[in-house]
């Protein structure tokens, strides 16, 4: 770090929130994260709106893309949850594309990854968790609480098993949010580290310039990995939502 002439790596700086839009943003505590949430929503809505505008029998490219997205999530919901899945399809569709748009927006230069904040991912996970509890209570009634005692286990073990089952149930939103948040943070920290290696090596003169190609190539490869991780984490979030809802609607 001393070689780079006083500039040090500060990888977590990129996750800091700052008020934007001048005085108005300051007054409303309006930071980059909500801005990019709005942008993500607008992108998804615009994609669906302009994709489905022609409403042609034989779809064009954009319409075909919109239809594939629709069918992908529809199949995911119906295959995992069952016929009741159609009722939850809009929720899962919105969740998947909101997270996907957030993950991919964060890969653009000068943008902000709102899914890299645990406050955001935990709020999303709590939404899923509370929905699954409400649906369970509505469908199963008080039989829902019987799930906390595994069937066929001896009564003697109940004091041990029931707390474990309750904790395992409560850990769902936590693991759901930690997974998305940790993946996004890890990816962006790696970007930052390798990018600052490039800058540091470039300040060393000719040999540094040659060596700087290494981290640059790694960053390009990382971008490919992050494209995979972005869609994968959105998919995992959506499919786990489906799994939790399936357990809620089944008796």
């Amino acid at each position: 770090m001393a070689l780079a002439g006083g500039s040090s790596i500060n990888v977590l700086e990129q996750f800091e929130l700052h008020p934007i839009f001048g005085g108005l943003g300051e007054a409303l505590r309006f930071s980059q994260a909500p801005v990019f949430m709005v942008v993500a929503c607008l992108i998804v809505l615009a994609f669906l709106h302009f994709g489905m505008k022609p409403a042609a029998v034989v779809p064009g490219r954009l319409q075909a893309a919109a239809e594939i997205c629709y069918e992908f999530i529809h199949n995911l919901a119906v295959d995992t949850i069952g016929p009741e899945g159609t009722a939850f399809f809009p929720f899962i569709f919105a969740l998947f594309f909101f997270i996907l748009a957030g993950n991919y927006l964060g890969l653009l230069p000068y943008s902000y990854t709102f899914t890299s904040h645990i406050a955001v991912t935990f709020a999303l996970a709590m939404m899923v968790f509370l929905l699954s509890i409400v649906v369970s209570l509505k469908v199963q009634g008080f039989k829902f609480f019987a799930h906390f005692m595994p069937a066929g286990a001896p009564m003697l073990l109940a004091p041990l098993l029931v707390p474990i089952e309750i904790l395992s149930f409560l850990s769902r939103p936590v693991s759901l949010s930690i997974r998305l948040f940790a993946n996004m943070v890890a990816g962006h920290v790696m970007f930052d580290i390798f990018a600052s290696f490039v800058v540091m090596l470039a300040s060393l003169g000719f040999i540094g310039d040659v060596l700087a190609v290494g981290p640059l190539v790694i960053n390009v490869a990382l971008m490919g990995l992050e494209l995979l991780v972005g869609v994968l984490q959105a998919y995992v979030f959506a499919i786990l939502t489906c799994i939790y809802l399936r357990e809620a609607v089944s008796h």
Partner: peptide, 19 residues
């Protein structure tokens, strides 16, 4: 496989954190 790895890791961590 990749999603399984991230799922298994976060499930273990999530349980411990909640506990």
């Amino acid at each position: 496989l990749l999603s399984l790895a991230s799922r298994a890791g976060s499930e273990m961590l999530g349980g411990l954190v909640v506990g």
